[in-house]
Amino acid sequence: MLRIASYNLHKCVGSDRRRDPHRVMAVINALQADVIALQEVDLRLGARPAALPARLIEEESDFIPLPHPRTGPNSLGWHGQTMLVRRGLRVLEARGLDLPGLEPRGALVARVAPVSGTPFTLIGAHLGLRRMDRRAQWLRIAEVLAEAAPHPALAIGDFNEWRARHGFEALTGFHIHTPGPSYPARRPFGKLDRLVTCGRARVQRMGVFDSALARRASDHLPIWADLDGLLI
């Protein structure tokens, strides 16, 4: 069993408008995930320094952030995104994927090898605000998912899509999983955070991580999915 998760940190600013990386780390640890795709890990202005310090991850968790790519020398992520991989798993590849659209957007592509089992490709994405941009972005992501064959491939993140079906036309042949409402954290009703899998990645169960702390730590709640088989 492998647990994949996604969490939009909102630059570690909570629903109470306080910036507190420590409580964000507490939520991340409570997820008990093996790999976590994170969004909005860096501040937006200037050189985009890390909102979630790498040293805090090292001191308070069993995770290692992807070593690259990075937006700037003091950034944790690229286009505000990174992945945390639990120690013991091997990252065989990590690269950025430029995405089309009016505003600069990108995804992360990581190839991860579990302790036992086949390597898989995971794409972490924070998609654009305009549906026409998201449709173009999904076309690019679908190409990378298909290129991973015969290995399993999946994408997870904040997809910024409010509708259940519209906007996902490029994902014919893939499975779209919606764990539940994750936004806004205090009273969630928007299902913006989702998971996409190919037929070789089987989701056994999934959910939205909801706790009193999670409702304060960010404006999104994290999502998670347990995969009981990565098939090849």
Score class of each variant (00 low, 15 high):
N160F: 04
F174K: 00
A155V: 02
P150C: 07
G173I: 01
D158C: 05
A185G: 08
Q137C: 00
I176K: 09
S182Q: 11
Q137N: 00
R165D: 10
E169I: 03
L154H: 04
A142I: 02
R165H: 04
P152L: 15
R165W: 09
F159W: 10
H177F: 11
T178H: 14
W162Y: 11
A148Y: 03
E161P: 11
H151Y: 15
F168C: 09
P152Y: 15
R134P: 01
A146C: 14
Y183P: 03
H175K: 15
D158H: 05
L139Q: 06
W138Q: 05
R165G: 02
A155H: 04
D133N: 02
W162R: 12
A164N: 10
N160Q: 09
I156H: 06
P179A: 10
L139R: 06
L139T: 03
R163L: 14
P184D: 03
L145C: 00
A170L: 02
W162E: 13
I156T: 05
P181H: 15
R163I: 13
T172Q: 12
Y183W: 10
L145G: 00
P150S: 08
P150A: 11
D158M: 07
F159M: 15
A164Y: 12
I176C: 05
P184T: 04
G157Q: 09
L171F: 09
H175I: 14
G180P: 10
G167D: 04
R135Q: 10
L171C: 06
E143P: 00
A148C: 02
P184I: 04
H166L: 14
P150Q: 11
A155N: 08
E161L: 13
Y183D: 03
P181Y: 15
A148D: 02
S182L: 10
E143D: 10
A142P: 02
H151P: 01
Q137T: 00
H151S: 13
A153F: 05
V144C: 07
W162F: 13
N160K: 05
A142D: 05
P179E: 11
F168M: 07
A149R: 15
A136G: 03
A153R: 04
G167Q: 09
V144M: 10
A164D: 13
P179I: 05
I176W: 12
N160W: 07
A148L: 02
P150F: 14
G180H: 13
D133M: 03
R165S: 09
F168G: 06
I141K: 06
S182K: 08
S182P: 02
H166S: 15
N160T: 09
A149P: 11
R135K: 08
G180K: 12
G157N: 07
H166E: 15
A142Y: 01
A153Q: 03
A136W: 01
P150L: 13
A146M: 12
P184Y: 06
P184A: 02
T178V: 11
E143S: 01
N160M: 11
P179W: 09
L171I: 01
L145N: 00
P181D: 15
G173V: 02
Y183S: 12
R135N: 03
G167E: 09
A170I: 04
A185N: 04
